[in-house]
Design a protein around this nucleic acid. Structure first.
Length: 1043
RNA sequence: GCGGGAAUGGCGGAAUGGUAGACGCGCUGGUCUCAAACACCAGUGACUUCACGGUCAUGCGAGUUCGAGUCUCGCUUCCCGCACCA
């Protein structure tokens, strides 16, 4: 009886559901294992074969762990707030909740098709009010806490207020706004209620602030830094501009150091950790205040990581936007500075980034004073100094910094060496920290390690600066001027933000008429009628915050909700959190390297500080799955110039010997020859042109007449029409050559509008004769286009196809991202329908390592299908007979089984699923060779296969007489005894080259092995009489004879 | 420019420092069939040899080692991330 996945799979899926096989309880009697996939955004396009890759790999691990006695949590849900649903709502008026619901239903159907062991009773959706109630609740906790640097954790703002009341803020070491003033207890109590609230905002971990943000007009919202790539929005690629706006912000900088340190204790890929380190961008250095000559009270603060080079500072550079520029510029320099500032402001981000090498700048005419040696140094402005980093000002040390060196060289400024180890300063800067300082006042003769503390000490003692750590990381903008997101649980009273009462959570998204900003430019929520907050019994009501939370809010804590998904009192109970602790293995795409993964770590550290999260880091181990790329098919469409090349290659060349050398335009641009083709011994000229270009035809005709030439006009379209019968065109040309008519032109307008050329023919033509177009891969098989179906499509109306000599039309292919727009999407549903879910799962794994990107090739799936059929065939004969017997297995059979147990166990542990599938194939091939149908071998093989092909395994498991699920069958135990063989085949090398093999008893000593090797004919022959220097025998492995 | 990763047949990819190319696709030949598909069997890195066999092969060049795809050093190319970050 044939293996029939369709029947088997639907049967067992229903059974699993009825049995609740995948229900997970928080059972403390068993060790836990929490494996998590990054939950998907349910897009309208559905899943393609690339999406489930990580889900399948983690499903295998989950099932494997369960068979090894673990209580496994392997949940799934949806990150269901997001821009696409809202964009769709704007276009169609359909509520995002409705389209999201539909998309989720489709996702679910596709996911169910693949046989995952998700416990759907634990599903979460970020857009569900029962879920976002807790997102809002966590936001409230952030608002109620500040970061205390002495405790090195988040503490309640209420405590902070008590300290202010007692002692003011002088002895408070907390992360706060840069401009927070010092105040005493008396100052504090003198503040009004509103002033106190405003002061506290400078400390809260989330707070509204006026700042420059990434404003995306096309999306009508601000974006956080990680949502902007190369100056445009990550979603949609719309332009982004800097705009000053009042926005909610998250004080993530408070956690910068902990986020950095935490990276050392988690098992994530080096590349992700490095990206996060980069994003945080910690640099340790010093801030130094430079006075400005003849500007009392003006001081320029700079940040430097190389304070040791300060004696080599020979000038100073400010960003063109620096606030002091206008004040400092001398009248003589005013015009030049104004011009430069204006020019710098006009440059786009792209220009700035691409013209890094160019040195530009302008002198302000003012001078700064080096606090260490009192030297006056000129102040320049230049756009290589960024307004947004540090203080927007640098002390320039041309001997140690290449950019400063370039600038100094360009403007003829002095370059002073500061270390005796610096070399070749006339060709480049030398940033060395080696050697002893020279020309450096108080640090002359010191090393780097001695100099830095000395200088910082001096700065601090003289009040001119201090040691300082600078981060590239900015506070994260938390507001979106959009509808489809979590409402911020805040109302505004007297221009200060107030949290709503916890009992009013969740603050549910109100209904609105249109998903657009109001006429006055307020966010969509301003459209909601009567949506105001009423406190207590008062009649007055207050306006809610109108922006919503960003996409990353709901995904920054969701792994806790899976632990306790229906809890109405807490986001997750203490017991559940303490049992599941954290994610043991997190799997997802590397595109979330700095967005989701950094914000999640931030929130988790915060929840940890509050005692709500049991671990500092939420995910111990992270694996990034690779992309499955599509194999796109492309057709070549002929452009104008193709027809000329075609006419020459296929039609005109045979006339060459009869009508003499032919003039063809050598270079179209020069137009040295008036006509496309002209024969030397015939007064006929030929012009190839589209019949639509009537003006051009008329002009050529007049010019031919004037030159006394006979003219033949060939339409591109008529060439296209008879493209597969070029002799017809040749006949026309011959006719014209031999005739004495003055003018040849086809009278009727051709029907053909475009021509496609079989890819295997295109090499003969220059590449710019064609444009490449994607065609749907379902129309292509083995790179051959299905013309009958293609001709039906609107896109190919009025098209003709130039076939290859075999009479078929071939396409080019390209490996690229799988996407709808490239028509290369392969739907998992189709694969499952044809080969079954088990086969699809195993083929996805078989393609290659999970972490690596690789192209999808549907053809290869037959190999896996054949394997599954053969595996089935060991149990069930062609006529449906049940084959397993209770005979005792042989040594060979046991060795085959236990080799597989060892390899498959090891390979799952190291996440090498592709080699697992190979081992299953080897196992099956060997059992077939051994004609083994013994239950003692086959039953453990079924258990091994269960994580990979759960449906097939369940079927065979039950046919073997079991009544409980194979999911709970214990993983087979390896017995090393069975791996041993009686004899060992040793490869024998001579000077490292493999020359032959010897077989000897496994118990043979190295000396015996050597002796046997030496007797071999092939050894004597290859040694050719040379004396043996030594013989290396690695027991059980190899023999190498050195001569 | 900086950082991370990679490079092995026609293709996807295997190889604790120990027979390079497992396994699969594709291809070639055979069996079955009127035929095709499916299935099954055999072969399949390149060059060379009637054959036995030999030579060359893991991006390039050195090195360590009895032995290197694997380790070290120096290059090349590709992918990813960051990028005038003081």
């Amino acid at each position: 009886m044939e293996y029939n996945p369709r029947d088997i799979e639907s049967k067992w899926r229903a059974w699993w559901q009825a049995q609740g096989t995948y229900r997970v309880s928080n059972d403390p009697s068993k060790p836990k294992f929490y494996i998590l996939n990054m939950f998907p955004y349910p897009s309208g396009a559905g899943l393609h074969v690339g999406h489930p890759l990580g889900y399948i790999a983690s499903d295998i691990v989950a099932r494997y762990k369960r068979q090894n006695g673990f209580n496994v949590l392997n949940p799934m849900g949806y990150d269901s707030f997001g821009l696409p649903a809202e964009q769709y709502a704007i276009q169609t008026g359909i509520h995002p909740a409705v389209s999201t619901e539909q998309n989720i239903a489709r996702y679910r159907e596709q996911l169910d098709n693949i046989g995952f062991c998700f416990d759907w009773s634990r599903e979460v959706r970020t857009s569900d009010p029962a879920y976002y109630k807790w997102t809002q609740w966590i936001f409230m906790q952030l608002f109620r806490h500040y970061y205390d640097l002495d405790a090195d954790k988040a503490l309640p703002v209420s405590d902070l207020v008590k300290r202010f009341e007692k002692n003011g803020n002088a002895d408070v070491h907390a992360v706060c706004d840069e401009d927070t003033p010092l105040f005493t207890a008396r100052d504090w109590s003198g503040l009004t209620e509103k002033e106190q609230q405003l002061m506290l905002l400078k400390y809260r971990l989330t707070f509204p602030e006026e700042s420059y943000v990434n404003w995306c007009p096309a999306l009508g919202t601000v974006l956080s830094n990680d949502e902007v790539k190369d100056g445009v929005s990550e979603r949609g690629g719309y332009p982004v501009e800097r705009k000053l706006m009042k926005q909610w912000s998250m004080r993530i900088i408070a956690y910068a150091d902990r986020l950095l340190e935490g990276l050392n204790e988690i098992d994530w890929s080096e590349s992700i950790k490095e990206q996060q380190r980069n994003w945080i961008g910690r640099s340790q250095g010093a801030s130094v205040r430079f006075a400005v000559d003849s500007h009392e009270g003006a001081a320029i603060e700079v940040f430097t990581t190389r304070v040791d080079t300060i004696y080599g500072a020979t000038f100073m550079v400010l960003a063109p936007e620096h606030e002091l520029v206008s004040r400092l510029t001398t009248p003589a320099q005013q015009a030049e500075v104004d011009a430069y500032v204006k020019w710098a402001a006009s440059r786009t981000e792209l220009e700035r980034m691409s013209e890094v090498k160019r040195v530009t700048g302008a002198a302000t005419g003012a001078f700064a004073v080096n606090p260490f040696n009192g030297e006056r140094i000129p102040i320049y402005i230049a756009d290589y100094v960024l307004a947004g980093y540090g203080t927007g000002a640098v002390m320039a040390v041309p001997s140690g910094d290449q950019r400063d060196w370039n600038f100094a060289t360009h403007f003829g400024l002095p370059i002073v060496p500061i270390s005796d180890a610096q070399q070749n300063l006339d060709t480049a800067a030398d940033p060395t920290k080696e050697g002893l300082y020279i020309n450096s006042g108080m640090i002359n003769g010191m090393t780097y390690d001695e100099a830095v503390p000395r200088l910082i000490n001096w700065l601090e003692n003289n009040g001119l600066g201090k040691g300082k750590v600078q981060y590239k990381l900015r506070n994260a903008v938390f507001s979106r001027q959009r509808y489809w997101g979590e409402p911020v649980p805040v109302y505004w009273k007297d221009n200060t933000p107030q949290l709503i009462s916890e009992k009013d959570l969740p603050l549910v998204l109100p209904a609105i008429d249109k998903y657009l900003p109001t006429e006055s430019g307020e966010p969509p929520l301003a459209r909601a009628e009567g949506w105001r907050y009423r406190t207590g019994n008062q009649d007055s009501s207050y306006e809610y915050e109108l922006s919503t939370m960003p996409g990353w809010a709901g995904s920054s804590w969701y792994w806790y909700r899976y632990m306790d998904p229906h809890n109405e009192r807490e986001f997750c109970s203490k017991e559940a959190a303490n049992y599941w602790k954290c994610v043991d293995w997190y799997i997802g795409g590397s595109e979330h390297a700095v967005g989701h993964l950094l914000y999640s770590r931030f929130w988790n550290h915060f929840l940890y500080d509050l005692g709500l999260a049991p671990e500092r880091e939420f995910a111990k181990k992270l694996t990034n799955q690779g992309m499955i790329q599509g194999r796109s098919s492309l057709v070549y469409r002929a452009k104008e110039c193709f027809y000329e090349e075609y006419l020459w290659l296929k039609v005109l060349q045979p006339f060459f010997k009869d009508y003499g050398p032919m003039q063809i335009p050598a270079n179209k641009a020069e137009e040295s020859v008036t006509y496309d083709f002209a024969f030397e011994t015939n007064d006929l000229v030929i012009e190839v042109v589209s019949w639509k270009q009537t003006d051009k035809i008329e002009a050529i005709r007049q010019s031919a007449e004037a030159d006394g030439k006979r003219l033949m006009v060939l339409f591109n379209e008529e060439l296209a029409e008879c493209i597969n019968q070029h002799e017809r065109t040749a006949a026309k040309v011959r006719n014209a050559l031999e005739s004495r008519e003055r003018f040849f032109m086809t009278a009727s307008g051709p029907q053909i509008e475009q021509l496609f050329v079989s890819h295997d023919l295109t090499a003969k033509y220059s590449p710019d004769c064609f444009s490449k177009l994607h065609v749907d891969i379902s129309l292509v098989q083995d790179d051959v286009l299905d013309l009958d179906r293609v001709r039906q499509l609107p896109m190919f109306q009025g098209a003709n196809f130039k076939m290859n000599p075999g009479g078929v039309f071939t396409c080019a292919f390209e490996v690229e991202k799988m996407s709808k727009s490239k028509f290369n999407v392969v739907n998992p549903d189709d694969m499952v329908a044809q080969y079954g879910a088990d086969c699809f799962r195993m083929y996805e794994m078989f393609l290659g390592p999970v972490e690596v990107s690789k192209p999808w090739d549907t053809k290869g799936i037959t190999g896996v299908y054949g394997f599954l059929r053969r595996f089935w065939g060991q149990f069930v004969s062609e006529n449906g007979a049940w084959l397993p017997t209770d005979e005792a297995p042989t040594r060979d059979e046991l060795r085959v089984l236990h080799t597989s147990i060892k390899k498959i166990t090891e390979d799952i542990e190291r996440f090498s699923m592709n080699t697992c599938v190979s081992h299953f194939m080897i196992l099956t091939n060997e059992l077939r060779t051994l004609k083994c149908h013994k239950r003692a071998i086959l039953e453990p093989a079924v258990v091994l296969l269960a994580p990979f092909a759960p449906h097939l395994a369940e079927e065979l498991w039950h046919r073997l007489g079991h009544e409980t699920s194979v999911c709970d069958a214990a993983w087979p135990t390896l017995n090393e005894v069975f791996l041993k063989t009686d004899t060992i085949v040793y490869p024998v090398q001579i000077n490292g080259k493999h020359r032959g093999n010897i077989e000897i008893a496994a118990s043979a000593t190295p000396a015996e092995v050597e002796a046997l090797a030496m007797q071999q004919e092939f050894v004597r022959r290859n040694l050719d009489g040379a004396p043996v220097k030594k013989c290396i025998v690695i027991p059980g492995r190899i023999v190498n004879i050195v001569a």
